[in-house]
Nucleic acid binder design. Structure first.
Length: 478
RNA sequence: CGGGGUUUAGCGCAGUUUGGUAGCGCACCUGGUUUGGGACCAGGGGGCCACAGGUUCAAAUCCUGUAACCCCGACCA
């Protein structure tokens, strides 16, 4: 961020206390409110509107690739959850249980879904019989519950909103292709809509999803250099199919197990937007996801013609963009700060001087620049500006990531970087769990992913010096 | 789950040391003047001082316990 005048005094500066800055924004931009239940938040209209835009864009991409939306129950009988061993071990520590219905104790307790693999599998076992039934490409939008010990709005809460796709395929190749396809969709969505650059790669066995054979991930880097897993796509092989007995008859009249995938992104993406783009004046939203793209503010609106003139500009822009016209009797300065806090990409000021000269002032949220444009082609000017802002925000985010990405050739370098920098560290790895654990233990870094785009830094593992198998991104994560 | 902190009006806080009428700023309501970076004047409304027990003539204040939230670490979308 360039040196930018700070207009809003009651947001903690991000360089003073990043965590406090984050919670200030989340509250002051009216995204959430805390609720009476520990770790659960009220998502307020403005925050929810961002989520609705995320849903809208992703839903379209899912449907274009043949997926259908469904809804599964929120309760999972204990016996069902128990069916896949790795899966239950991964989730058991953080599930919430329902033990009573009214005053009656239940025969079998029900878990509130932490994720719905087991429900989809049990349903798929019922409805898949023939190769003609495949693939099954289902997705659901819902909330899930994980009894997290420490929580932060959007980044980690006890209940959160997400989408989970669950698909069943006739063979390994189709399933793997689906796993990659969905990861690519997530990556495209993050980059094109959220202006968040991501690194695509595979999780190590230690970090992969409970029950998965492979987990693909998109990893992003926040403003403070810490890593955030923005989305994951899992390949299950036929492990769940065997546990849940999901079989079909193939063309040769032989019984086969299906191969499955699952993939999800959550309201955590909203946290990513905040931490990626926000500044000391508040939220900064990429135009492609902002619930309000343009705020039109009349200045000195009791002067003759001003209110009407400004309203006319707002109406014209409203035909092409989502526009907020604010004719409340707050002072213009108050409105400027308020819409900056809320991250609205473009502000249009219309005052007596402007109307006299057939012009308006456009102010960019991302860098504070103001330009004066003619009213004649203001729609085009605003369209261009929104476009430029979206691109600049992405480029800026990329620069932050580049400036905070390091290389380590040996353990000493790795440790030194871990102690003195926050960011991604690229280093070679032999593939042994022991080394991954040692790096976590001694340097405080977790493996973020083995990127699809591999580089060769050295031929030896950064930890043990044995021959390296993969280049890995390491970092401190949210 | 460890370590620290907080809890008084919608929000942010003072008052607690030394017990004695519940306060300030912002927000809110009414009327008026204003408006190019969080306007001003006047009037007004709003509180079981987190909860439960004690001590006392008297408790926001002292004692005991409980809960919620925040921050920092270990585990996770």
């Amino acid at each position: 961020m360039k040196e930018q005048k700070k207009f809003v005094e009651d947001i903690t500066s991000m360089d003073v206390d990043f965590a406090k800055w984050y919670t200030d924004i989340v509250k002051k931009a009216d995204l959430i409110d805390y609720s009476g239940v520990r770790g659960c938040m009220v998502i307020r209209p403005y925050g929810y509107a961002i989520w609705e835009n995320i849903q809208k864009a992703l839903n379209q991409m899912f449907k274009e690739t043949g997926h259908e939306n469904v809804y599964m129950p929120m309760f999972i009988p204990e016996s069902l959850l128990q069916k896949e061993k790795d899966h239950v071990e991964g989730f058991a520590p953080e599930v919430a249980w329902v033990t009573h219905g009214g005053s009656e104790k239940l025969q079998e307790r029900l878990c509130v879904r932490p994720t719905s693999e087991t429900l989809f599998c049990s349903h798929y076992a019922d409805i898949i019989h023939s190769y003609r039934d495949l693939p099954k490409l289902y997705n659901q939008w819902c909330s899930v519950v994980r009894w997290e010990k420490t929580t932060r709005p959007f980044l980690r809460s006890v209940e959160f909103l997400w989408q989970e796709g669950h698909t069943a395929h006739a063979n390994k190749e189709d399933a793997l292709e689906e796993t990659e396809r969905m990861l690519n969709i997530y990556a495209k969505f993050c980059e094109d809509f959220l202006a968040i650059p991501v690194i695509k790669g595979q999780k190590t066995d230690k970090e992969k999803f409970a029950g998965a054979e492979r987990t693909y991930t998109i990893e992003s880097m926040m403003h403070d250099g810490k890593a955030l897993q923005a989305g994951t796509s899992h390949y299950f092989g036929d492990g769940f199919a065997r546990a849940f007995d999901i079989q079909f008859t193939d063309k040769n009249n032989e019984l086969q197990y299906v191969h499955q995938t699952s993939w999800g992104v959550s309201t955590r993406l909203i946290g990513a937007i905040i931490m990626m783009h926000g500044d000391n004046n508040g939220l900064v939203l990429p135009p492609n996801i902002a619930p309000i793209q343009v705020a039109v503010i009349p200045v000195a609106m009791n002067k003759p013609g001003v209110l009407e003139g400004a309203k006319a500009v707002a109406d014209r822009l409203g035909a092409k963009f989502t526009v907020k016209f604010d004719d409340s009797d707050k002072s213009p300065g108050w409105k400027f700060s308020e819409y900056e806090m809320k991250g609205i990409p473009v502000r249009v000021e219309v005052g007596p001087r402007d109307l006299e000269q057939n012009q308006a002032v456009l102010a960019r949220r991302d860098n504070g620049e103001k330009i004066v444009v003619s009213l004649d082609n203001i729609e085009q000017e605003v369209a261009n500006l929104l476009d430029t802002i979206q691109k600049d925000m992405f480029e800026n985010a990329k620069k932050i990531r580049e400036n905070n990405t390091y290389y380590a050739k040996d353990f000493e370098e790795l440790k030194d970087l871990a102690d003195n920098k926050t960011g991604f560290i690229k280093a070679m790895w032999c593939g042994d769990l022991a080394c991954e654990e040692k790096i976590k233990e001694d340097a405080g870094l977790s493996s973020r992913c083995m990127p699809f785009e591999q580089e060769t830094i050295t031929d030896k593992c950064v930890c043990c010096g044995k021959p390296a198998k993969k280049m890995v991104y390491w970092g401190k994560a949210y």
